[in-house]
């Protein structure tokens, strides 16, 4: 009897204290959110690939957030369920557990609300949750899965929480650069040179292992902007959200992880190669009253880069490609 009780007690303690496997790389900062239920993420993965979430029944989240493209696509603007183009370039979905703001203009602050926006937007998936509930309720697999995960029937809130849970698992932290940081491999001399240049000239915004300062900048892509009177014109950038003229033409600093897979670049996908982006920063920055002062110096506008510097930076940026991340998430039936 005594041993049985002790055994039970030990079992209880072990069970209640079971350490969860760290869901993020050891050299990353603490995320702002963590995954609490892996079953929920599995359901979310199923939903992420589910075309019933779109008005025409043909688009899933994965249609524009393609796993092999680091959850972005190859277009400047993606094509929504009504055949309309999105107003901004589809971003890569990576390390979202550390993100604070969503969309290029930061109008949304949590994954769940971002999902509502993309599902209901006429330019994106163009579907209502009322209609999605009808479609999912006609499939027994979803009735069962929602019951299993939430002990409840299918609701809009469960749908967005499940997809958000899956998106929290999209962690990229095992690229050649990460291996280098963990002393598991080394960089080539050219990559080393690129890394030093990057730290001097790019890391002020593309900061740390997440390669973003989570802030908004006007990088001088344009010199002419709509007036604030056009309060909901997407070309106002961040100012469309804040209604503050000082935010005109500002966009969120994107992560540079898996950069090789996420072309085209910038909020409107105007550049097709990394080299074009670097040329913009070295010689193409437009000077307007809205251009970030980081790009304005006494003698020149932009970031001084020689052709050799660009070669080194391009070579360094290749090391941010994370093949494990792509492989692990290549489809919904592989875990």
């Amino acid at each position: 009897m005594k041993y049985l009780i002790i055994a039970l007690f030990i079992f209880l303690i072990v069970f209640s204290c079971k350490q969860k496997k760290e869901s993020f790389p050891s050299h990353f900062p603490l995320p702002s959110r963590t995954l609490t239920n892996e079953k929920e993420a599995e359901l979310g993965k199923l939903l992420f690939f589910e075309p019933s979430l779109s008005g025409n029944g043909k688009l899933s989240c994965a249609s524009c957030h393609i796993p092999s493209r680091a959850f972005s696509d190859t277009l400047s603007f993606s094509i929504g369920a009504k055949g309309e183009l999105t107003s901004r370039n589809t971003p890569s979905l990576v390390n979202l557990a550390w993100a604070k703001d969503f969309f290029w203009d930061g109008g949304v602050h949590d994954l769940e609300t971002q999902i509502i926006a993309s599902v209901t937007s006429a330019r994106e998936m163009n579907e209502s949750f009322a209609s999605i509930l009808k479609k999912l309720n006609s499939k027994k697999i979803y009735q069962d899965k929602f019951r299993e995960v939430y002990g409840d029937s299918i609701t809009g809130q469960h749908i967005i929480h499940a997809i958000a849970a899956f998106e929290l698992t999209l962690v990229s932290g095992s690229s050649a650069y990460d291996e280098y940081l963990l002393n598991k491999n080394s960089l080539t001399p050219l990559q080393e040179k690129g890394k030093l240049l990057f730290e001097q000239k790019c890391a002020i915004c593309h900061t740390g292992v997440l390669f973003t300062d989570n802030k908004f900048h006007n990088t001088g892509l344009d010199s002419i902007f709509p007036p604030m009177q056009q309060f909901d014109n997407p070309l106002l950038g961040r100012a469309r959200i804040t209604q503050n003229a000082s935010d005109i033409g500002k966009y969120r600093t994107p992560s540079l992880r898996n950069l090789n897979l996420t072309a085209p670049y910038m909020h409107d996908g105007r550049f097709t190669t990394i080299r074009q982006v670097l040329s913009h920063y070295s010689s193409g920055v437009n000077k307007s009253i809205y251009t970030d002062s980081l790009f304005i110096h006494n003698k020149r506008t932009g970031i001084a880069l020689t052709e050799e510097d660009k070669n080194a930076l391009v070579d360094f940026l290749q090391t941010l490609t994370d093949s494990t991340f792509i492989k692990d998430n290549s489809s919904f039936n592989k875990k």
Binding site: F103, G107, V108, H109, D110, T113, I116, A117, T120, S121, S128, F129, R240, I241
Partner: peptide, 10 residues
């Protein structure tokens, strides 16, 4: 209540 919510500017 999606008609009572701006989801692009939460």
């Amino acid at each position: 209540h999606s008609d009572m919510f701006w989801s692009w500017n939460a």
